[in-house]
Design a protein around this nucleic acid. Structure first.
Lengths: 227, 227
DNA sequence: GACATTGGAGTACAGACGTTCACTGATGTT
DNA sequence: AACATCAGTGAACGTCTGTACTCCAATGTC
């Protein structure tokens, strides 16, 4: 396939041309729309099914296309799964980056972080649900990809903790342990949000209050810590 | 069926008789052994598959019986699932009870708890793996049953915390929040153990050390907490 | 306007699935 | 010894699955 393409190739700047003009085309637009519909259908079906319990035909049925059309977009269900991982991990990463790029006062950093978490989980429910579910179920490769992201987050948080005076003299190992506790608590909060009916401000406020108090509990005694 | 049995029934104390003698019988023993084999096969297959991606035929195949024989033991796969939940939750409860019935000195309560957790997870890997995986995947009913157990555990731990002088004056709500943090950390530790190769003393010791230090971090500042 | 490309439809098939049914042979009961 | 029970068998069913193929009509290219 690769070889034949090399033979068929026209002599002049075909590559540059192709790379420059993939935008706009009505056909390409339709294709992307269908592709998105497939991804969204899967994401929605995952509210009730595990990924493994999801069939190609089921997905195409909810999209409203014929089963064989699936192959115009993905090699098989595994490829769909990988795409979903990439997307979800991307969403997670963007949230983490957003959190790191803020630089609120020490006094409100907890409130702000929780607020950011809640906002992102709400805005990207299916992605976060996917991550939470696949973290321990699914295929090993998927679990690893997700875990990797969380470990990265823990490491970054450990770095960020130095910004706040108290912990600068801690050894890195201890800062990592603490960051891990905090991340765990954040994940637990995300799970609580996902288990909530999407529009219930009272319940949501309750989750927020709990999260903030718990984070404060964790942080409060740190100045006593002796390695 | 029920009706015909009523007609066939012999007049004297058949029920009492049947109820008194279900033990021992060679047939009953064999049956129970097969039943166990089915449960274990499922539990083992769950190392690689989600429960939803598990077929009746697959299970019977690994047991070495014909698909139809499955129905001698369970109505369908759902019934198998429920049995697995009951078993696993039972294992979890026994661990929690064991932990509560101990009454070690204040100074070593953390070490002892972690040790107990690690021991139980090792001894009942498949059950704990099942719980961890089904906690967010699977059917809603299963998720609820598991969550219920964890909530119960949190409540019990909150009560137990009063044994240790520092927290007696806390309001219950705060004690619950703290217990929740601790339980979260314990679950996270259990997950770390499950993700470990089963026989790696070095890695295991590392997990234990981490868990102990993290618990101590959480607990250390509590006397500063003001509601 | 003629030709090439391609997303989606339609048909088809082999394999896995859950479940039914009538059977058999070892175990238990009288 | 005669009979009843029942865990496991084996064949058969209808349904759903993934995937291979041909075809078509709208889009893109020249």
């Amino acid at each position: 396939m690769v070889d034949s393409r090399a033979l068929d190739e026209v002599p002049h700047s075909e590559v540059a041309h192709t790379a420059a003009a993939p935008t706009g085309g009505r056909r390409e637009q339709r294709k992307q729309r269908t592709r998105r519909a497939v991804l969204d259908a899967a994401l929605n079906l995952l509210e009730e099914h595990a990924f493994e319990g999801l069939s190609l035909r089921q997905v195409t049925r909810t999209v409203g296309i014929v089963p064989t059309a699936f192959y115009r977009h993905f090699d098989d269900m595994d490829a769909l799964g990988i795409e979903l991982v990439d997307e979800s991990v991307g969403t997670l990463r963007r949230m983490i980056r957003a959190a790191r790029e803020e630089d609120p006062d020490y006094g409100v950093v907890i409130e702000r972080s929780v607020q950011l978490l809640v906002g992102h989980v709400h805005a990207h429910r299916p992605h976060f649900r996917f991550i939470v579910r696949q973290r321990f179920s699914g295929v090993a490769a998927v679990r690893l990809a997700i875990r990797e992201q969380f470990e990265l987050f823990v490491a970054e948080l450990a770095t960020d903790l130095q910004r706040f005076g108290l912990l600068t003299h801690w050894p890195l190992a201890d800062r990592l342990l603490l960051a891990d506790i905090i991340v765990n608590q954040m994940i637990s909060t995300a799970e609580a949000i996902l288990d909530m009916p999407p529009d219930d401000p009272t319940a949501e406020q309750q989750v927020i209050d709990r999260a903030e108090r718990q984070l404060r509990m964790i942080v409060i005694g740190l100045s006593r810590w002796k390695t």
